[in-house]
Design a protein around this nucleic acid. Structure first.
Lengths: 104, 104
DNA sequence: TCTATTATTCGACATATGTCGAATAATAGA
DNA sequence: TCTATTATTCGACATATGTCGAATAATAGA
C-alpha cells in the first residue's frame, strides 16, 4: 500500500460484477483468511463466477483488476488460485470515508 | 438514499477529477453545510474547477454525476450553484467498509 | 507421458466514458 | 431591457471498459 490510488480502488469497485466478487470474498471468510475449500469451498474463477453470468475469462480479468487495485490478494494452490481480501486496504478504505466525515 | 447503488457510487468516485471535486467539497466545510462564499468562497463550476485543468462544461458534467450518485447535493443561488456533500451517503459509505471488516 | 481440470492470455468488438467548444439558459444589476 | 457572469446542454470524438470465445498455460493424478 504505497501510494494509495483511491480513484483506482473505486474504479475497481465500480463494476457490479467486480463489486459482487469483492463482496463474496468479504463474506466467505474473515479478511486476511484465505478463501478456499477449507472453509466454504470458494476458489477463484470457478466458484466466484458461479453466481454471476459471465465467462471464466471475464472473471479472471475482474479478479486481476481487484488485485491490481490492491483490494485482494491471490495465490496459486494446485490447480486453483485462491483469493482473499486484503485487510490493510479494507482498513484504509474504512478510514477514508470516516475521516472525510469530520472535516479532515 | 433508497436503494443504495454502491457500484454507482464507486463509479462516480472512480474518475480522478471527480474524486478531487468530492474531496474539495468534503474539505471546504463540514458535510451538511453548504459550501459557498460565506465560508471559503467555494461555488460549483467556477471554484471547484479552478484547480483542475478541465473545461467548465466538464466540471458541470462531473458535478451532475456526483449528484446522481447521491454523493452531493446542489442548489441554485443566484448566478451560482452551490454544492455540498450529502452527509447521509457519506455516513453510509463509512459504514459499508467498516462492516465488511468484521465478516458481516 | 497422457488426460482432465482449473485458470489465464489474447484478439475482437460493442458500448461507456471523459473531454472539448459552441450554443443556450439563468440570473443580477445597471 | 441590455450586459455581464455563471452554469448547463448538446453534439462530436478519441479512448477506456466489459465481455466473449478460442487458444494456451499450469497443475494433479493416473
Amino acid at each position: 500500500m504505497e501510494h494509495q490510488d483511491y480513484a483506482g480502488i473505486f474504479k475497481a469497485l465500480s463494476n457490479p460484477n467486480r463489486l459482487e466478487i469483492f463482496l463474496q470474498l468479504s463474506r466467505c471468510c474473515t479478511p486476511g483468511t484465505v478463501c478456499s475449500k477449507t472453509d466454504i469451498d470458494v476458489r477463484c474463477v470457478g466458484d466466484l463466477g458461479s453466481g454471476l453470468n459471465v465467462a471464466a475469462s471475464t472473471i479472471s480479468h475482474h479478479i486481476k483488476e481487484l488485485y491490481r487495485a490492491g483490494l485482494i490478494n491471490m495465490r496459486r494452490s494446485g490447480q486453483n488460485v485462491e483469493c482473499w481480501i486484503d485487510p490493510e486496504t479494507l482498513h484504509m478504505l474504512s478510514g477514508f470515508f470516516t475521516s472525510q466525515g469530520q472535516e479532515e
